[in-house]
Amino acid sequence: MSLTFLQHIFRRATRSIWENLYLNAVSASVIGASLILLGLYSLVQNNLSTVIDSWNKDVHVSVYFADDVDEERRLELRDKIHGMSEVIQVRYVSEVDAKNWMLEEVSGIEDTLKELGDNILPASLEITLDAQMAHPKRIEEFASKIDYDDFVATDYGVEWVDKFNAFLRMFQALGTFVGLLIIIAAMFLVTNTVHLVIYNRRNEIEIAKLVGATKSFVVLPFLIEGTIQGLIGALGALTGLWVIHRTLVNQLQQHETLKMMTDLSFIPVGQQLLLLFIGLTLGLMAALIATLRFLRKVG
């Protein structure tokens, strides 16, 4: 295949894009819209995973003292637990500390708390565990090790993280399934649009074949056209996703209570490249299927 031949092919492809601008724009938009949906899913899933990971790494167990345990025993237990190999840090929180914390976090309850007295909240130990302990079973084992009578309650909040993890796994499975459906639907739509472009040029194809055009001369311009549609669609989708991401971050920053979520990250470079690859493949495959289907019909 000579360079001149390829130049002719590229010229035919770009010319066809220009001459069928509307249909090509429709194809690129369909690809773009599908990739935006996939990208949005990716954005949500990545950020949820990051949050879950941070929760998992931050392994905490809280144990609450019974009212009758004196200060000396409390500190003794604190030191004993601190000496355990799994423990990184232990913080003793007295009834007064707990009340002060409550006053700082929740506004407008000062009067109520004053009436109830100093011992409204129990004293506790806040235990930070090693990151390797970030597994529900290990945390449960650890909790059973410190199951002293001096404690009235133990809270290690892993159960709901575990449930959230299960939800995330289901979300991933559902996302993969819906993502596949979106790709198949986009492929179907783009194939039919490319088929329309080919149909518009059927006389030209017939004449080219009569003057000795090879299959590659007929097929390659459409494949290039499809790939360009995919590329434009993917770049459009990535731009759209970036705009959505920035808008979301700006919106979150304006709300006091949601400020903590402003470190919402954009989809990683690897997934951006994957979206680009999916766009190109979608355009190319749709063009290939449409062209071969057309050639099979006309012989």
Binding site: S2, T4, N203, E204, I207, A208, V211, G212, T214, F217
Partner: peptide, 18 residues
Amino acid sequence: IPTRTVGENIGLALEVIG
């Protein structure tokens, strides 16, 4: 081909062979 000029119509036979 109605959408191609006379020159492009005639040249097609040479274009296909590069």
